[in-house]
Design a protein around this nucleic acid. Sequence first.
DNA 1: ATATGCACCTGTGTGC
DNA 2: TGCACACAGGTGCATA
Length: 270
Amino acid sequence: MPELPEVETVRRSLEPHLVGARIADVDVRERRLRRPIQADIAVRLRRRCVQSIERRGKYLLFALDGPDTMLVHLGMSGALELRATAAACAPHDHVLLHLDGGRTLVFNDPRRFGLLRVAPRAALVELAAVGPDALGEEWPAARLKVLARGRRLSIKNLLMDQRGLGGLGNIYVNEILFRAGIRPRRAAASLRGREFEALAVALRAVLAEAVRLGGSSISDFRDGEGRPGYFQLHLAVYDRAGKPCRNCETAIRRVVVGGRSSFYCPRCQR
DNA sequence: ATATGCACCTGTGTGC
DNA sequence: TGCACACAGGTGCATA
């Protein structure tokens, strides 16, 4: 579920409730995530106060009032949910942070591809693999061109590589390439100047619109307060194989690029 | 160094 | 109804 717009939506929904809140107790019900939950996580989090919530790519960083920062990645199926009480656990509630005042922040993740780790910020090695944020920074055509220079992979795989720019996933790369009129299998280095220009415009437009609409609730995405997003109603190509292009009526095609389903309009995208 | 394929998990939808 | 299979928003590792 979560790419940049969904993670940013979660961040914004939690920020007003969590900044200033203190963690009273920690309940770990399942340690086996992408990396095992640290043995000392409760010691590190207990009595700590959240000072800010930042986002870098698809990672959330909860700065605490001690030496540590809590790093969270939602993987494919993860969710952070603020509950009014320390209510009975739902399936796949893996980590519960009980807050002063009675509310609980729950990390739920059926597939367990997510990550939750607490350490000094400089020790969060996962962040070393994430490039500058796709929305938090300016990405003019020239900067995208630099990323593509000398690379032999497809433009889709280039945009999905978190080391280049952080935050894009399969949904939004498909949507951005549609908006820019570029087929996902095009070699990144083969793009023309005006195509990089179109890509730069599409990148910002699609992400900004998706954030404005609270992300995409394809099956079950919800923000920290349980609210769905609405960008799924605006998807032009993702998961629309065989359906008419919203622009020209041509049937949307599905191909596999880099092992992932990719969707494009054969007429609007070249 | 760069690019690709697959494994890691559970849930859901589809066809037989 | 039950079963087998394909597929799903991501990432990391092994292999060419």
